[in-house]
Design a protein around this nucleic acid. Structure first.
Length: 330
DNA sequence: AACTACGCCAACCGCCTCCCA
DNA sequence: GTGGGAGGCGGTTGGCGTAGT
């Protein structure tokens, strides 16, 4: 009650908390705070641990792949930050929430529309997300020219407690397809309904650095079973479409698709292939054009060459998008 | 150099649910 | 059944760094 500290944590406090948890484990945060001699509330200790000190917390910029995933998952679940965070290993709900508020809402502000408005959601779907896919592809293409990537099924992703040596991507590209991978503990509360529709959920060992070299199958090795609930490895990331390429607005169980040769993928001719139906593309571009017409010099019309990581609606993109739609018409 | 505006993000707050006595 | 504690979650705030003037 008395003499409780607030505000930023000191290095000493951090070390005290880390050492205490290393010895006694986490949980029962109020008594933990008292026992460890920290003049903090249990809540404060819990938050500090989960959002900052936890060994597997991932720091640094949100990658393109993560941005894409956040946008997609937010369209499904809204502000369910903790649920979204479950799909971005190493990222905290706080971090994702901050990303959304600072970056995404900034764009909505630039567009002079509400972040929850149809206008803005269309802008995300028809501009931002395709642009992200395109950039991810471009980056992947650059990578694959220097590396001989093979697709054999399960990836060997070592589960690691080293902050900098894991979790760099939830996606990898194999044979030109975005493949959702998971390199750490899958969501502990995930159930099958959250995930794959028709495909079989299998269990999988998550590997310590010691056994990572033997992780090329879904067999259990009997070592360090972290949370073998569902197999995150080797799922294509794609915007789900029906057989006639109509986008599934609420993908539900079909969102993450298992790898298969029939998987809709992106190609060089039309990066938006499989993303949106022709009608939706038409409607989307018309909506966006009408937005642009209102105020042609709105600040979100960035100049090309701006390399801002989340700048997606520059003149180049708009022209490119329009060109693609015109080609589609022919 | 000084000041201001703005973006980022760690931390806090309040409400809710769950669990257990 | 119920009251209280613990933990979880989403919204909000405030401090710090930096870019702009």
């Amino acid at each position: 009650m008395m003499d409780l500290r607030r505000g930023p944590w000191t290095v000493d406090e951090d070390l005290t908390l880390i050492n205490y948890i290393a010895t006694h484990g986490e949980g029962r945060w109020n008594s933990l705070a008292r026992s460890a001699g920290l003049k903090r509330t249990g809540k404060s200790c819990r938050l500090r641990w989960l959002n900052y000190l936890r060994p597997d917390v991932r720091r640094g910029n949100i990658t393109l792949e993560e941005q894409l995933l956040i946008l997609e998952l937010h369209t499904r679940w809204g502000n369910r930050w903790s649920k979204i965070a479950q799909y971005l290993p190493g990222r905290t709900d706080n971090e994702i929430k901050n990303y959304w508020r600072t970056r995404v809402q900034k764009h909505a502000k630039q567009l002079k529309c509400d972040v929850n408005s149809k206008q803005f959601k269309d802008a995300m779907r028809y501009l931002w997300m395709p642009r992200l896919v395109e950039r991810i592809q471009a980056a992947a293409a650059a990578t694959t020219t220097t590396a001989t990537a093979t697709t054999t099924g399960i990836n060997n992703n070592a589960y690691s407690y080293n902050n900098n040596n894991h979790l760099n991507n939830n996606f990898e590209v194999h044979n030109g397809k975005m493949v959702l991978t998971n390199t750490t503990t899958p969501p502990s509360v995930m159930n099958n309904n959250d995930f794959v529709g028709s495909s079989q959920i299998t269990t999988q060992s998550y590997n310590t650095p010691e056994n990572s070299s033997t992780a090329a199958s879904s067999d259990s090795f009997g070592t360090t079973q972290v949370s073998p609930i569902s197999d995150f490895n080797d799922y294509n990331y794609s915007v789900p479409v029906t057989s006639n390429n109509n986008i599934i607005n609420n993908p539900g169980d079909n969102f993450y698709q298992p790898c298969s040769s029939q998987q809709v993928s992106y190609n060089n001719e039309n990066p938006y292939y499989g993303l949106f139906s022709h009608q939706q593309q038409q409607q989307g571009i018309m909506d966006l054009q009408s937005m642009m017409m209102v105020e042609p010099n709105t600040p979100w019309m960035m100049q090309s060459g701006d390399s801002s990581s989340d700048n997606f609606w520059n003149v180049e993109n708009m022209l490119f998008l329009e060109q693609q739609l015109m080609n589609d018409n022919m």
